[in-house]
Design a protein around this nucleic acid. Structure first.
Lengths: 214, 214
DNA sequence: TTGACAGTGATTGTATCCAATGACAAGCGT
DNA sequence: ACGCTTGTCATTGGATACAATCACTGTCAA
């Protein structure tokens, strides 16, 4: 039994990808007809896709006016990070005992790869994989979907921040990642949760120090 | 500038109300044409409403098959409560200093009304108002929307539980509410957050002790 | 009796067409 | 010159019509 429908889901997936990749920047206008043409479909599936993405917080709809790629202001970004600070440690802590040795090794490798990453896109991709993988054993699918939504909605601003501070501004992140992996290897839930909360909180404060991104 | 569109939003609001009130139970089939007829509209706005409610987690859509009022199993309910346990204290703590004396008094009055409530619906309504009001000064609108979503999706199961245990099973809740109000009056963030987490955690365990609800 | 299978009806998915709304610009009056 | 009005056009919102899919049922055969 397929999870959901045909053209509408494909439009949504493609548009989501375009937004997350940065191909469409926050504030960019989205015209239904243009999307419909690109997919060789009518506007109906496009409209449903827009509704889905609106619910995900990636698109903003205004009645009788149009659709735009969603834009977060600094306050909303801070709010998102404060929520992450509470929820991501939960997912991490719930799944820490289920993490395999192989997965911990994978996390360590990811941390190393991030340290060696030369470009922003690679860094962003690895960072996302690292964090989502570390929480992937929670056994809480709704929580994981929520967390993924946080990452999706803030993707553009993490990209902007990473570009701004460059590689030299990221050494703290790498140290935090290493400590987190170490705590995971010890299967110490308290330490791991505390480190992750610290990591997210410090990132939030660093972001707040650069309001020019928004 | 209106926030959103016309018929679709009205359909969504009405259907949401029907689900939350219990008029439509989890698992109930939703036929597009029937809803369209009820609103004197075509199926297009109905479909967009269904997509919105699906995103809210109140409706479940299956391609080429149909729509049903969403149903949570025990595991999903537990998961929701674990998320609440982390996020609601955040909203409470962020807003505790902004709560006015009048609002604290209102909360105390609500707690008293709940103790006197004779029927389940009144209890549910007051409980919801109590908790949402206590978090209403967080200044975090996205967080508050998230929390409201948690309450919406578990509404049916809280009703079932309250009906099951009856008034005599609720004295612990009332004591927790009173202690929470007292901590709020002292503007003690640590105590208030801890009490709220305790309250939610204990409720989750109580719920898990009655799997026959699901 | 039971299983598979095909046909039928109901329901959803999509396309096309029309209506309504809003933005923009030209023209008019002051 | 400036502001208001009005008309036009682009874009979205909704209705109707049609295609596709699925569930159900009745039939047939082993």
């Amino acid at each position: 039994m397929r999870v959901e429908s045909l053209v509408g889901r494909r439009v949504a997936a493609s548009l989501r990808e375009a937004i997350l990749s940065g191909a469409m920047e926050p504030g960019a206008r989205i015209r239904q007809e243009e999307l419909a043409e690109r997919f060789g479909s009518s506007r109906i599936p496009v409209r449903e896709a827009l509704r889905v993405l609106e619910a995900e917080g990636l698109v903003r709809l205004v009645a009788n006016s149009g659709a735009w790629v969603a834009k977060l202001d600094l306050a909303e970004c801070i709010e998102t990070y404060k929520m992450r600070e509470r929820l991501e440690p939960l997912a991490l802590g719930e799944g820490i005992l289920a993490l395999t040795e192989e997965e911990v090794a994978r996390l360590e490798a990811l941390a190393a790869e991030m340290e060696a990453a030369e470009d922003v896109e690679t860094f962003l991709r690895l960072d996302r994989v690292f964090h989502l993988l570390s929480s992937s054993r929670s056994g809480m699918p709704m929580l994981e979907a929520t967390i993924r939504g946080f990452w999706d909605r803030t993707q553009h601003y993490r990209r902007a921040y990473a570009s701004l501070v460059g590689r030299e501004g990221q050494w703290v992140i790498h140290h935090e990642h290493r400590l987190l992996v170490e705590a995971l290897r010890r299967r110490n839930r308290v330490d791991a949760e505390a480190l992750l909360a610290l990591h997210i909180r410090r990132t939030r404060l660093a972001l707040a120090a650069h309001p020019e991104i928004f």
